[in-house]
Design a protein around this nucleic acid. Structure first.
Length: 370
DNA sequence: CATACGTGGCA
DNA sequence: TTGCCAAGTAT
């Protein structure tokens, strides 16, 4: 077991490894607080490669905090479309307004003020305080947890309270004063590039200090928390066509995909066929009587805790009917052309559906009907 | 403390 | 194909 008198040696080896192995990332050019903040929020639960592309596009559109505060939520949502965890961007918007109102538009430097902003938890507050302002503050993410679970061969689920306390305490003891910016990033970078899920011990600068390596079991760490099985659900949805346009509605501003546009639809109930479900859902959500013209396709879409099989149909009104719905599951609605559908923000599953549909020749005659 | 929240890549 | 997970936060 590594002892505290080796901590400074370990930290130095880690720092010199980072100096030559760190990736060139846009926010590492100047460590401007606004850029560090946006990068940290974007990278939460998101892979680096995707995050960087979104970051560049975001910065071109919104170069400073004021521009975020003044932007319309739909603009931000569109820039975030496809990234997932959309409460992050709504919190970013709220936080930008708070920074303008309460901090004169300057990103706050004090840890407690950073931590108090919406969307910023323990990890992100520590990351910004150390990376943007080089304050002696720890930040623990899944990479750091993995690195430490191996160095100290933690043989119980790493998320357990006593393990997390141990990791926090040890990182704090190891952190070289005045070098938190480099040290924290080095720890995370090592976890991302070397001490990854599949470990690459042969190129690890901390190999000598690592207990799991010496035991020959780095791949068995960290011990995961037991998880529940993934649920499967069937969902039915449809394109209702009327006078060459398609019906879409906007979701309420709470819950999943808040403020997103979508096609009406919902879960197929026990003993129900998807064809019945789509007709029922349109009635429940819009009071539109619809009939099925054709089945378009089935799209499968995976989420963290469940898996959706989406059945999609071409629909028309079952009888002559007003184009005005009675909304029960939406805040507003519109009839759009296929082109206009590209400009609204849709959940990824719907977007996937749409991409298949753009090439479907069956669409043309239906859209020309009235 | 458990659970919800999105998505795409990978084995 | 299915299951797991990658720089977490809010409730």
């Amino acid at each position: 077991m590594i002892s505290p008198d080796q901590y400074s040696t370990l930290a130095n080896e880690l720092l010199s490894w980072f100096a030559t192995n760190k990736r060139a990332l846009p926010w590492r050019e100047d460590y401007a607080p606004y850029r560090v903040w946006v990068s940290e929020i974007m990278l939460q639960q998101t892979q680096m490669e995707r995050g960087v592309a979104y970051f560049q596009r975001w910065m071109e559109a919104l170069p400073d905090i004021m521009s975020v505060a003044q932007a319309h939520e739909d603009t931000l949502l569109k820039l975030w479309e496809g990234l997932g965890y959309y409460s992050r961007v709504r919190n970013l918007h709220k936080a930008a307004k708070i920074i303008v109102a309460e901090h004169g538009g300057i990103f706050p430097e004090k840890y407690s003020a950073i931590r108090a902003l919406p969307g910023i938890g323990d990890y992100t507050a520590g990351a910004i305080a150390s990376i943007a302002f080089n304050q002696d503050v720890i930040c623990i993410d899944a990479n750091v947890e993995r690195v430490f679970s191996r160095i100290f061969d933690i043989d119980t689920p790493v998320k357990q309270k006593h393990n997390m306390e141990f990791i926090r305490k040890t990182v704090a003891a190891m952190l070289p004063s005045g070098h938190a910016r480099e040290f924290n990033q080095a720890l995370m970078e090592l976890g991302a590039l070397v001490c990854s899920k599949k470990p690459h011990c042969s190129r690890c600068p901390l190999q000598q200090h690592c207990e799991a390596y010496h035991l020959g079991i780095p791949h068995e760490r960290p011990v995961p928390t037991p998880k529940k099985g993934i649920q499967h659900i069937d969902v039915a949805t449809g394109f209702l066509m009327h006078k060459g346009k398609i019906y879409i509605q906007k979701r309420p501003d709470f819950g999943v995909w808040a403020g997103f546009w979508e096609l009406p639809g919902g879960a197929v109930e026990e003993g129900e066929a998807p064809e019945q479900a789509v007709v029922r859902e349109f009635m429940e959500e819009t009071e539109f009587p619809v009939q099925i013209e054709d089945k378009i396709l089935v799209v499968k879409h995976g989420y963290t805790t469940y898996r959706v099989t989406m059945h999609c149909y071409f629909l028309t009104f079952a009888q002559k009917h007003s184009a005005e719905p009675v909304l029960h599951a939406a805040t507003t609605y519109q009839w759009v052309s296929m082109d206009e559908l590209n400009d609204v923000t849709l959940p990824a599953g719907h977007r996937k559906l749409l991409d298949h549909l753009q090439n479907d020749m069956r669409l043309k005659p239906l859209l020309q009907n009235s």
